[in-house]
Design a binder for these strands. Structure first.
Lengths: 344, 344
DNA sequence: AATCAGTTTGACAGCGTTGTCAAAACGCGC
DNA sequence: GCGCGTTTTGACAACGCTGTCAAACTGATT
């Protein structure tokens, strides 16, 4: 028994297919009595519109694109967070009967903008979710804007045009982590900054400064090093910091990869963690639990963030009067073995 | 400028739309010269078939499902290999103008079979790629079989029905690694087995035994421990092995997570790697490069494997007379810092 | 040169829906 | 009961592709 079509419904309800279409799409100007008759026929036949035919005729799709930088592309792979995003986006799409199109790309390439433009033109998605660091690149955001496709940035702030965004409270939670370290008695708390392209990572540095101030500690440029988010840069930064005449007793790195690098350095220099040095990261990547000692870090609610983003694109019950919304979902601290009381 | 259609391509190539269709769908009986002309036109116009129209006209979808176990679901996350599979599958799908539907699931759940059956019925994919360990579970393979959907297993062997498969030479390359360790002078080479559900991982154990034999070394149950693929189980196994009266001088773990666990134990026990103990893993996960010392391991060609699988499902020029094929793509050894000459 | 089997190509009718536009029905004021 | 604006409905042509089937073209064999 083949699946019923709009014609079958029309025949049963005694109307034209167009009227059925109107009912299905909740268009106005259908008499209530007619609508009810059609709805009954739909129920009786268990009619479900064919998505392909709908898409074809309406020139719309139910595709949501998820665009992210693929660290595997340049061999700096801590891509666990990508799976979280995918999971969240998938969940959001499912609940809205949409499909998810994943698109990993290399944010360092000159022509990512063009690549995305082509992707959008090829697949015509109903919306795009852009993850950091791509979501912080004006070039990228502009390229997507130019196609007119709705877009949600997984990134803090509303600085880049009127786009919607979903982000976490990087700054606040980083301040919290800093206060936590201060609370353990640390007075020389160093910070390893990340790639400045990455807006969220930059906010973590601001949070660090907030936290120092709130704890009555002085900020010093001598306790700051600038990495590029990679494990290797974390090593370099930690070495620099630990070779100071007055080395820090705690290092807070803007991400876990760099914190892991710092841990390697500590191991090499035979500095006990957390006995002599406390170490904290950010992101809660798999590695954070696998190194010895396990890293204290901060977990972003990426699954929920991506789900939220997908929902913002599939329903349009969100956003302010201008049609944009900026959701913030708070992160949580994960205290593990790498942080402890400051040494004497 | 609207998106090019099959008519545009036909006009540029000077053929009928049907011929373009044949080229796009890789149907036989198109003269090579014609095919080339059409392919050029497709490239020039950047033509991409409209999925909705294709699906509508052909009554099937051009969706390829990629089904895999999501380690994040149970917090044992070394999911980097998933991104590789996705990348490969994506590549294969793109070249066949198909779309990729990703479906992470938890292989430990009782009802994964039902979940997959429902997924297939809802989305009607043209084919399914199943990754290990799901691809080794008869329950799962049978559930997919029952839907009649073509399926390629990313897993060794042709034991489970007539399904197609793509795998790597786990056994041979494991033997090679074992011979390499023996070649460094090690005579007591231990092996940490993985989860027995994972067929490929079991093959690595066989390869280890082959390698011992080929190197003239005796196999001993005392040098074997059984883990479950997790980092934690690697620690437990390594502890057990290293506490033996005659501890091994080399440990080959069936995967990198367990090797990383063994490394943690060595660090804790102040055993120098590779001075006193050589350590080798399998998979070349991100972690392998991030630990200190970096792990010697074996890299599976997952990207190519998944791409191959996608192509097997989108073209149908593969397989033997029974319509099944079993491709093997060789893995490569990555010698890093964690292996060295045996101590005196 | 005619025949035949196979290969290669094209014309055209769908596929199930929405968009357009005109026709029909309705409601209201006279 | 008529005219007029508004609401409701339907006929039919897209949408971009594939399936069917017949026509045209091959080349080997008479």
């Amino acid at each position: 028994m083949p699946r019923p079509t709009i014609f079958d419904v029309a025949k049963v309800a005694g109307v034209s297919i167009k009227t059925v279409s109107r009912v299905v799409n909740r268009e106005p100007n259908v008499r209530t009595s007619t609508r009810e008759r059609v709805e009954e026929a739909i129920a009786v036949l268990k009619y479900r519109p064919d998505q392909s035919a709908r898409n074809l005729a309406s020139h719309r799709s139910h595709l949501i694109g998820l665009v992210y930088d693929d660290p595997a592309a340049y061999d700096m792979p801590s891509g666990g967070y990508i799976l979280d995003m995918q999971q969240g986006a998938l969940k959001g799409c499912r609940s809205a009967f949409s499909e998810l199109l994943i698109h990993p790309c290399d944010f360092r390439k000159k022509n990512v903008g063009i690549e995305l433009k082509e992707l959008i033109e090829e697949t015509r998605p109903a919306g795009i979710i852009v993850a950091a660091p791509l979501s912080n690149m004006p070039k990228i955001v502009r390229a997507i804007d130019a196609t007119g496709t709705p877009c949600v940035r997984l990134s803090p702030g509303n600085d880049l045009g009127k786009k919607c965004s979903v982000s976490t409270n990087d700054r606040e939670v980083s301040a919290e982590m800093t206060r936590y370290l201060a609370g353990l008695g640390h007075t020389r708390i160093a910070f390893i900054k990340g790639n400045p392209d990455h807006k969220a990572v930059a906010n973590r540095f601001l949070g660090y400064q907030d936290g120092l101030k709130e704890s009555g500690l002085e900020f010093s440029e001598n306790l700051v090093a600038e990495g590029d988010n990679s494990c290797g840069s974390g090593e370099a930064c930690a070495e620099k910091l630990l070779k100071r005449k007055k080395p820090p007793t705690a290092i807070f790195a803007a991400n876990d990869d760099m914190a892991a690098g710092a841990l390697r350095v500590a191991n090499r220099m035979k500095i006990d963690v957390p006995g002599q040095l406390s170490l904290a990261g950010f992101d809660d990547i798999a590695l954070a639990r696998q190194v010895e000692p396990a890293l204290t870090t901060i977990r972003q609610p990426l699954v929920q963030m991506a789900e939220r983003a997908a929902l913002m694109l599939t329903k349009n019950n969100n956003g302010d009067s201008n049609g944009n919304a900026h959701d913030i979902i708070p992160a949580v601290m994960k205290i593990r073995e790498s942080t402890g009381r400051a040494p004497e």
